[in-house]
Simulated scan of single mutants.
Amino acid sequence: MAEAINRLASQKGVVIFSNSSCCMCYAVKILFHELRVNPMVHEIDLDPEGREIEKALLRMGYSTAVPAVFIAGKLVGSTNEVMSLHLSGSLIPLLKPYQTMP
C-alpha cells in the first residue's frame, strides 16, 4: 500500500490525503486555497481501500493519518507540520512552483 500512496503522491505537485469530515483536513485545504495552490485531494473515507491507506499513512510515522500533505512527492506531514512551516516562512517557498497566478 505504501507504493500506491507514493504513486498517488507523485501525480501532482501538492497532494493531500484527507477525510471529507475532518476539520483539520478542511483547515489545511483552505490554507492551500488561500495560498493559490490547487492540490490533488484524495478523500480516503470515500475510497474503498481507505482503511488500508489510513493504516499505511500511520505506519509512515504520524499520530494521525490525515491530513497527510505531500509536496513534490515528499511527505511534509500533517496539520502541525504544515502550520509550523507556514508560520516559520518555509511553506511558501516549497509551494511557489505550484501556485496559480492571482
Rank of each mutant, 00 (worst) to 15 (best):
C25L: 04
K29I: 12
P102Y: 08
V41D: 02
A4H: 09
S90T: 01
H86T: 06
M60Y: 00
L91V: 09
K96D: 09
V82N: 09
S78T: 12
I92R: 11
V14S: 04
S21P: 00
S88N: 13
G13A: 03
A65T: 00
K96A: 11
S21K: 14
P39C: 06
V37M: 07
A56P: 01
G73W: 05
S10E: 07
A65C: 03
S18C: 12
Y62A: 13
H33I: 06
M24N: 10
D47K: 02
L57H: 01
C25W: 05
V41E: 03
E3G: 09
S88W: 05
S78I: 00
N80V: 15
E43W: 01
M60C: 11
L31H: 02
V15H: 06
A68I: 12
I30V: 15
H33P: 00
P102T: 12
S90Q: 15
A56R: 02
V14K: 02
S21C: 13
M83T: 05
T79P: 05
L75T: 02
K74I: 07
A4E: 14
M83Q: 10
L35K: 15
T64M: 03
Q11R: 13
F70N: 04
L75Y: 02
F32W: 07
T100L: 14
K74Y: 05
E81G: 01
G50E: 07
A9G: 05
Q99Y: 08
I71T: 04
V82T: 10
T64W: 00
N6V: 05
E49H: 11
L85A: 06
E43G: 00
V14A: 09
M40H: 08
L85H: 11
L85S: 04
D45Y: 12
L87M: 08
V28N: 10
L91D: 08
A2I: 08
L35W: 06
A2S: 13
M24S: 10
P67I: 07
L75N: 04
G50R: 00
T64R: 03
R7N: 15
G73N: 09
E34T: 13
K96F: 09
L46F: 05
T100I: 13
A65F: 06
E43M: 04
S21Y: 09
V66K: 04
Q99D: 10
F32I: 03
S90Y: 02
K29G: 07
A27H: 10
E49S: 12
H33Y: 14
P93C: 05
P102E: 15
N6S: 05
R51L: 12
V14C: 08
M24V: 06
R59E: 12
